[in-house]
Amino acid sequence: MKAIHNASAVALTIALLAPNASAEGKLSLFHWFEYIPQEMLDRFTAESGIEVTMDTYDSNEAMLATLKAGSMGTYDLSFPGDYMVQIMSDEGMLDTIADGELKNKANIMPEWLEVPYDMGRKSSIPYQWGTTSFSVNRDVYTGDISSTDILFDPPAELAGKINMLDSQGEVLALAAMHLGIPQCTTDRDQLKALDAQLQTSKQHWASFNSDTAKEVLVSGDAAAGMIYNGFSAKGRLEGANIEYAYPDQGVIAWMDNAVLLKDAPNRESALKFMDFLLEPKNIAELTNWAQYSAGVIGADEFLTAELRATPENNKPADSGPAVFVEACSQEVQAVYDKIWTNLKK
């Protein structure tokens, strides 16, 4: 009896100590710039007692480069895009989440559970997803915009007034879709055609810029531009008469994910934060702020009515497919690098 009493006293002590232990818990995020509201982090800290620190990056590649240059073991979570999850996984930079470690894993929508870059979600959870295609200023051009011709073989009104994203992966993927060839093709004729297409299309392009993709459309510097759907919606709300296109050739799908990094210094806190992000209410708060889409069951009901009705977030059923950018093999990537350098030489 005494032994049991002692045991329960120990258990009680542990139970009492546990919140204290987590009160000293830390969480170190490596995140995109401006991609989570500070209030959410504060609320997580208030709820869990875990202190959050965050460094930011401005591209998937920059994040990879920083981690490879010796920052592994510094951060618990980072937020790579789809193809980058695959790359990081191939590089052995991700930790595996065992079954049952995430209590909210069942909240992930089925279509985002089996994704090509992380089948069964062993290391990642959905953060935000959306599409990338292009938007057109309807004051300048009123014709049909349901084809990628708008970017690659534009009508006279738009030629010379087009901004492209300054991102090799997305530009080459959309160009491949425009030509109807597979991504990362090894066929030499197809690769030559891709190179030639970009050379011809370049004369119609005014600039390459990702950070100001929205701003150039709002200011009128560009009359059409490759853009992420959420960016385009923000531009429209800022008063620009721009329409986001879902072309017949298809759109690029992208999904940012929270991944558990190998050698995470605060693995437990990281899992807690992942569970936090999988709560419909929390992820909906984030989605309302970021204006993209969540991949979590039940989040919809917490979204603002505006966001649910946003045309940019609702892909028409008769439009082309949404395709993830693929991570090419080393041989094809070498050719892609050449094509990109040719384009910008």
Binding site: N163, D166, K202, W205, A206, S207, F208, N209, T212, T341, K344, K345
Partner: peptide, 10 residues
Amino acid sequence: PDLLGGAKNF
């Protein structure tokens, strides 16, 4: 070059 030149050329 990026902001004023449009980053068209490296």
